[in-house]
């Protein structure tokens, strides 16, 4: 029988270590390719790689999703990881991207609490902003130095390391709270960002802040942001909008402030 090609060797290797993560799935044809005293010795050698594959990637996901892992506990997290790796094997040279679809994966599972997918989305957003592109941040001085009559036309741009997410559950409480998954559904909007000193934060937003931030991100001018507070007197709406912008600037999520040309 001719020797298998390199491609065939690698296909058999992959089938034996990665197709069924955390479960034995050694291809008999691969066992025959491996040197050893006997089949038991050969399988022990192959198992070093299959065990390492699962354990290494499990640890990566546990580091990326510490709250999900803690809340479901080690045994169920292992089961989640086995299913996830089978459905979403890593497609990137950098392992940093491995967990990109865990939230989506959890959303389709019926054996884990529904809030878990939202929590995973928050944890992944924190990873994405951690290494998002750098950008200078606008300062309070940049804002208050603008003449008052130019404010209505002011436009703002957000730093790249800012994400917003909308969850069905209060995931910020799951993230920081105790060890219970027993939470009631509650529409929750959050912003997630990396501050100037590279720390990652998230904060829940009420409806007004969420709407105002959406307008700011989509390029709406200050006057449009003020419309979020249309139920208030004009001066009050401007004051509330300005207060929001000051908070965003202090948090470091505003990249630029542009006056109309």
């Amino acid at each position: 029988m001719p020797a298998p090609s390199l491609c065939e060797v690698q296909r058999l290797f992959w089938e034996s270590v990665a197709v069924k993560p955390g479960r034995e799935s050694i291809a008999p044809a691969f066992v025959r390719l491996v040197c050893g005293r006997d089949d038991s010795d050969r399988k022990i050698r192959i198992a070093v790689y299959s065990d390492a594959y699962f354990l290494r990637l499990r640890d990566v996901l546990r580091d990326d999703y510490p709250r999900v892992a803690a809340l479901v506990g080690p045994e169920q997290f292992d089961e989640v990881v086995k299913g996830y790796l089978e459905a979403f094997p890593s497609r990137w040279p950098s392992v940093r991207h491995l967990g990109h679809a865990l939230s989506e994966f959890l959303r389709h599972r019926t054996d884990t609490p529904k809030c878990l997918a939202d929590l995973a989305e928050l944890e992944w957003a924190r990873i994405e902003v951690f290494d998002a592109p750098d950008a200078e941040c606008a300062t309070i001085e940049d804002f208050i130095s603008v003449p008052a009559d130019a404010w209505p036309a002011l436009r703002f741009s957000a730093i790249p390391a800012l994400q917003t997410l909308h969850a069905q559950y209060p995931v910020h409480r799951l993230w920081s709270g105790g060890a219970s998954l027993d939470v009631s559904a509650e529409e929750t909007a959050l912003r997630v960002w990396r501050s100037n000193d590279c720390r990652v934060f998230h904060a829940p937003m009420d409806e007004r802040e969420s709407a105002a931030l959406r307008k700011m991100i989509s390029g709406g001018p200050f006057a449009t942001i003020c419309e979020t507070f249309a139920d208030l007197p004009e001066a009050g709406a401007a004051q509330e909008s300005a207060a929001l912008l000051v908070r965003w600037i202090e948090d470091g999520i505003i990249h630029r402030i542009d006056q109309a040309a």
Partner: peptide
């Protein structure tokens, strides 16, 4: 090697030591 069919093992997997693989 560490990837096949577009999937990455994130491991350093051994190669067969043959003339064909040397050339490859």
């Amino acid at each position: 090697w560490g990837a096949v069919g577009g999937s990455f093992a994130h491991d350093l997997l051994p190669l067969p030591y043959t003339e064909e693989v040397v050339r490859h």
